[in-house]
């Protein structure tokens, strides 16, 4: 087990993803501090920063050769669940930790909700379309929410704009929770559509 963890993390390029995610949050925090004296980052930029921090983890959800990994007699589902949940915890943790350098990305509840929902969508995307394409829908959805950033309204609108709802909003929390559950279950069961033998040895 002790050898498994570093090999697994390296094979999934996790160190690079963590560096990209932390670096992105640090860059946004530094740019915000340079542009304004207000520590509180606006909602739109918070949403996009959460997406910026989450999407580097999408390529870590699959290795270079899924066919080869399948031959290993290991219980993969719990490992995948742990991987996905750890990504979400890391994104939320990094966003909350930005307060240490004087940048406030908003209440913890909202940050945890958004990180959970985004990681869930990435997991679901990986299960349905593969890790290479898993980042597209969560990122595009976050960007559209930034553009239409008016919270409240009818239920369907609160579901569609779940990331910009106030932290105590129930519909936003339920939506994010549903995405996380679907992503965890989907990713535990499957890592993308089958790849043809000719392409199996190619990288992601």
């Amino acid at each position: 087990m002790s050898r498994f963890v570093p090999l697994y993390l390296r094979s999934r390029r996790v160190p690079a993803a963590v560096a990209a995610s932390a670096g992105a949050i640090a860059a946004v925090a530094a740019a915000w501090a340079g542009m304004t004296k207000d520590a509180q980052v606006n909602t739109g930029l918070t949403v996009l920063t959460a997406a910026l921090a989450a999407v580097p983890f999408a390529p870590t959800l699959a290795g270079n050769d899924a066919a080869l990994e399948k031959t290993a007699a290991l219980p993969w589902p719990p490992r995948r669940v742990l991987h996905l949940v750890a990504c979400g915890v890391l994104v939320a943790g990094l966003l909350i930790a930005a307060r240490l350098v004087g940048t406030d990305f908003g209440p913890e509840k909202a940050l945890v909700r958004n990180a959970a929902g985004l990681i869930g969508l990435i997991g679901l995307g990986t299960a349905l379309a593969g890790a290479r394409h898993a980042w597209q829908v969560p990122l595009a959805w976050a960007a559209v929410q930034c553009l239409l950033q008016v919270p409240g309204g009818p239920g369907w609108r609160q579901v569609a704009l779940w990331m910009i709802q106030p932290p105590e909003n129930r519909i936003g929390a339920i939506t994010a929770g549903a995405f996380l559950a679907a992503g965890v279950i989907g990713y535990a069961l499957r890592v993308g559509p089958p790849v043809s033998a000719a392409e199996a040895s190619l990288e992601q």
Binding site: A24, M35, W135
Partner: peptide, 23 residues
């Protein structure tokens, strides 16, 4: 060739556009 590049570049381009709105 890094697989991190497409999502990171897209997200960074979005964030830059949104951040300059504060200027």
């Amino acid at each position: 060739g890094s697989p991190l590049l497409p999502p990171a570049l897209a997200a960074a381009t979005l964030v830059v556009q949104f951040a300059v709105q504060s200027m």
